[in-house]
Amino acid sequence: MTAAMSRSLVRLQRHFGNILSAGPICPRNQQIRFASNYSTAAAERKRFYQDVSISQGEGGLFEINLDRRKLKTPGGKLFTVPNEALAIAVATEWDAQRDTLKFYTMHLSTLCNTALDNPTQRNKEQMISAALKYLETDTVCYRVDEPHGLVELQKNEWDPVLHWMENRYNVTIGSSSSILGPDIPKATKDTFRQHLNSYSFWSLTGLEYVITQLKSVVLSMGMIDRHLTVEQAVLLSRLEEEYQIQHWGNVEWAHDYDTYELRARTAAGALFVHLTSESSTVKRKLLQD
């Protein structure tokens, strides 16, 4: 990895945290039903390369090279990404691995593999429908009747984000303490369907991944639109759990571990969405004598 490539990621890491060189993260297989199940290989493998580089191939797509070998997907396709910024981010993941490759920490690479191989063979319309189903069971829309402290906490912390979402997209969502949840108007679903249709297949891959992590379309869109930070979105998605921990205590290391892991996955998904929904280029400074 060249110094120039490493410096190019500093700007990205300011928004999404230092996730690209994160240490080992143990996956919670019960909760990850989407891209994380589509691993690049076995859980771990001995590192078999020395250098990582990127190159531009046919059609302007960028490739990842491990020494002189081109990286391929689990399905055998050439691993190509649509822009240089994403290529640098993926290359950084591979370069950050030490003696043992821990594929379950390489979230961006896994998302790229999912977009390239499309193992579930879905199209954009099916992906949008799957994402919108989470709106019907959105974390911030389901409220409790008791205890009073949690009721107030949900109101104070979730309502501002929900109101921002409704104003931002001119929709009605609402909340409910009923087991059936709020009745989402058809007009609201149509608005979000139209909005999500503006995303590319790659971006939808990342957005659906984020939604499954947070169990919330509202929090996911709030973060993608940069109304919420990754830390804020994760904390709001765990609001009830955090409330219970404050009152009953917890196994501190396990709580910290789960929180860090969820932040890493969520940040990677958000970064992936931005890198695939914008025209991302890497600017280099010319050195003068």
Rank of each mutant, 00 (worst) to 15 (best):
L214G: 11
P160H: 03
V140H: 06
D183N: 07
A43G: 03
E136Y: 08
H255N: 12
F48N: 07
H107A: 13
Y260R: 08
A233G: 01
V140F: 08
D51E: 14
E84L: 05
T276W: 12
A267L: 14
E240H: 06
V171D: 10
I25A: 09
L66T: 03
V251G: 00
D138R: 12
F34D: 14
R238H: 05
L236E: 09
S178I: 03
N29Q: 06
E241C: 02
I173R: 08
G269I: 13
T172H: 00
Q56Y: 00
N118W: 01
D256G: 01
K46R: 13
C112R: 05
G174N: 05
T229K: 06
A270E: 14
V217S: 01
A131W: 00
N83V: 05
L180F: 14
H15A: 05
I245E: 09
K133G: 13
I184F: 06
N170F: 13
D138V: 15
N170T: 10
Y142A: 13
D145I: 08
G17P: 12
S53I: 00
L162E: 05
V144M: 03
P27L: 01
R33Q: 14
L286F: 04
Y134D: 15
L239P: 07
E231C: 06
K215G: 10
C112E: 01
I88L: 10
R168K: 09
F201H: 05
H274V: 11
D145G: 07
T73D: 10
R168V: 02
G59T: 08
D183Y: 00
T205S: 13
T40M: 14
F201C: 06
K189P: 00
R47Y: 03
L235H: 07
M1W: 01
G222Q: 11
K77D: 12
L207Y: 07
L71N: 01
E166C: 02
N167I: 00
N113D: 12
E93P: 08
S237V: 05
T105K: 03
E261C: 10
F192C: 01
P82Y: 05
A131M: 15
Y209H: 14
S176N: 06
E252T: 11
L78V: 13
S280P: 04
R263Y: 07
L262G: 03
A85P: 01
A268C: 15
S176C: 09
Q50C: 04
F103Q: 08
Q232Y: 02
L287R: 01
V90R: 04
R33F: 04
G60V: 06
P27I: 06
K133F: 13
I224E: 04
